[in-house]
């Protein structure tokens, strides 16, 4: 018992501290007779842990094909961090933890081959962790979410691959990727005049490049 603790209850309640505590109990009856006994109680620590999602500077967002960075730490000696089976869904491939896994303090989950989003929209993957020691389990789980963004796609329909000087080009730009923006990285007009586009010009999917171009020379 803690020093100075007395109780007349047949089942006194105390709050033990971490580690091994020896409780010495002494009983005295109405006649002044005494007896004593002792018991040992070992209180094990409930393990704690921290999940830090360092992926893409902590945003948790990656582009298709990239790796992730989820760091697992625990100050509890002997702690085993368990990853529940990860549901990658039908559009993300390359995941290594569909069956879950176990990790130790300091381990990092990277999905080393990269996660590939085969769809045209972002997909969220949730990693759920728990921690336990051989003696105790922490009932509180923690999660890290990764958003796997698709590689944007572009379709170009050039209905004017060859025009006469003074005519307009008509190039339809489209993308099935949600939120896509199409941007010109460079234009090489050469000796052709009349063009107005330059690097940085942007288009929304479904719009077209249309501009009249002039070839004042005698060759293509």
């Amino acid at each position: 018992m803690p020093p100075g603790f007395t109780s007349t209850q047949s089942n006194p309640v105390v709050t033990p501290v971490l580690g091994l505590t020896t409780y010495v109990l002494q009983v005295t009856d109405a006649f002044g007779c005494t007896d004593s006994d002792q018991i040992d109680v070992t209180v094990n620590e409930v393990p704690t842990f921290t999940v830090t999602n360092n992926t893409n500077a902590g945003t948790g967002q990656i582009c298709s094909g990239s790796i992730i960075d989820i760091n697992l730490t625990s100050p509890t000696i002997g702690a085993i961090i368990t990853l529940q089976p990860v549901v990658y869904g039908g559009f993300v491939t390359g995941g290594l933890y569909a069956a879950g896994g176990t990790f130790a303090n300091g381990n990092t989950i990277t999905e080393g081959g990269g996660l590939i989003n085969t769809s045209n929209a972002p997909v969220s993957i949730v990693y759920t962790f728990s921690v336990a020691t051989p003696d105790c389990t922490n009932p509180v789980t923690q999660q890290a979410t990764i958003v796997v963004n698709p590689s944007p796609v572009l379709s170009i329909t050039n209905s004017t691959p060859s025009i006469c000087s003074g005519s307009a080009v008509n190039v339809l730009l489209n993308s099935a990727t949600s939120g896509a923006v199409i941007r010109i990285t460079s234009v090489n007009y050469g000796s052709v005049t009349g063009g107005t586009l330059s690097a940085g010009s942007t288009f929304t999917p479904g719009s077209s490049i249309t501009e009249s171009l002039i070839n004042s020379g005698n060759t293509r």
């Binding site: 572009l154 993308s175 990727t177 941007r183």
Partner: peptide, 10 residues
């Protein structure tokens, strides 16, 4: 015309 496409940071 040289082009690229951007979406969701990719």
């Amino acid at each position: 015309y040289n082009l690229e496409v951007l979406a969701n940071g990719c």
